[in-house]
């Protein structure tokens, strides 16, 4: 187990190093770093000062070291637009994105598992086929377009739900969240559903495949022969077994939900990290772009690491195969 975790840690460190190198080369070597850290209206004196602080007269590896050092201190420059440290801006926006992602995940699980299990249990019924057709549609529908249509139907035509912003927030453990107030919950509903749609389809498919596979297994026959009710077999024995793949895949997908929140946040004017990066790209607010990329990449590496370790705890076969190989 320890060997496995140490291996994964080393691998994560290598990936982090590689990604920081890519961002560094992308921003510093391809683009002009002076222009990245200077706004367009800077004068010559300021230009020279920036060249000196960035150490552009030094060799490339030394520049890279300075960049990493700054990143480690949390100093990635000030945003041109907000005139505040870029990293601070991103950290401030993070809770909004996280709560949206978590709400979406919760929706996907709460609706996906029962629907998928039903479709797996009665694959040939009309409802079962309908659920599967819906999940194919969920995979094919472009997220951003669905978001617009949700706004059109639920906010404009029916007027049931608000379509922009987080609504009222309340502090829980010092973090402002919409999930704690009624108004906030109403606001989170549409964007969370929009973000959840793709994952919902995924969970439905996983649950369906899992149920179909498990229903043929001997332990189900045994449990039935023992005299357990079908209800108990499905909701206790089968459910437990299909949860392992669902949990793993959803863990891996948490990262992609955070990445895709870029789209949903832009549509629903949700003040999270995703909206910030799009606004920053449109305003050429480069320090924020660099900070966002580094923060997100680190976040991803941590998520991947945690999921790998958790998976190996849940399913020992993975761990054994990895140590042997």
């Amino acid at each position: 187990m320890t060997v496995f975790i140490v291996r994964r840690l080393i691998q994560s460190a290598i990936v982090l190093f590689a990604m920081s190198l890519i961002v560094f080369i992308g921003v510093y070597a391809i683009g002009n770093p002076v222009e990245i850290f200077l706004s367009g209206d800077a004068d010559q004196a300021e230009r020279e000062r920036v060249i000196a602080t960035l150490g552009l007269d030094r060799p490339l590896w030394e520049q890279y070291w300075l960049f990493i050092e700054g990143a480690a201190r949390g100093d990635l420059g000030n945003s041109f637009v907000h005139n505040r440290p870029a990293l601070q801006l991103i950290i401030e926006r993070m809770p909004a994105t996280m709560e949206l992602a978590l709400a979406a995940m919760a929706l996907a699980i709460v609706f996906g598992i029962p629907l998928g299990m039903y479709a797996g249990f009665r694959p040939h019924s009309a409802l079962g086929r309908g659920i599967m057709a819906g999940s194919i549609l969920g995979f094919s529908l472009p997220t951003f377009w669905v978001g617009l249509m949700l706004i059109m139907i639920f906010a404009v035509e029916l007027g049931w739900l608000p379509s922009t912003g987080r609504g009222q927030t309340a502090n829980v453990f010092g973090i402002a969240t919409s999930l704690a107030t009624r108004d906030g919950l109403v606001h989170v509903l549409l964007p969370a559903f929009n973000l959840a749609l793709f994952k919902l389809s995924l969970v439905i498919r996983l649950a369906r495949a899992g149920v179909r596979e498990n229903m043929l297994m001997d332990y189900v026959k045994f449990a039935r022969a023992k005299g357990l009710s079908m209800r108990r077999v499905v909701f206790v024995h089968v459910l437990k077994n299909i949860l392992i793949p669902i949990v793993t895949v959803l863990g891996l997908e948490l990262g992609s939900v955070i990445a895709f929140s870029v789209v949903t946040e832009t549509i629903f004017a949700w003040p999270g990290m995703g909206k910030l990066i799009i606004d920053s790209i449109n305003h050429l607010d480069r320090p924020v772009i660099v900070a966002y990329l580094l923060v997100t990449v680190t976040l991803f590496i941590v998520i991947n690491l945690v999921v790998d370790v958790l998976y190996s705890v849940l399913d020992p076969r993975v761990r054994l195969a990895d140590v042997k190989g």
């Binding site: 992609s256 990445a259 991803f300």
Partner: peptide, 11 residues
């Protein structure tokens, strides 16, 4: 291991 949209966004 990174979602497509993030890779595209970075680039």
């Amino acid at each position: 291991s990174f979602p497509a949209i993030l890779v595209a966004l970075i680039l």
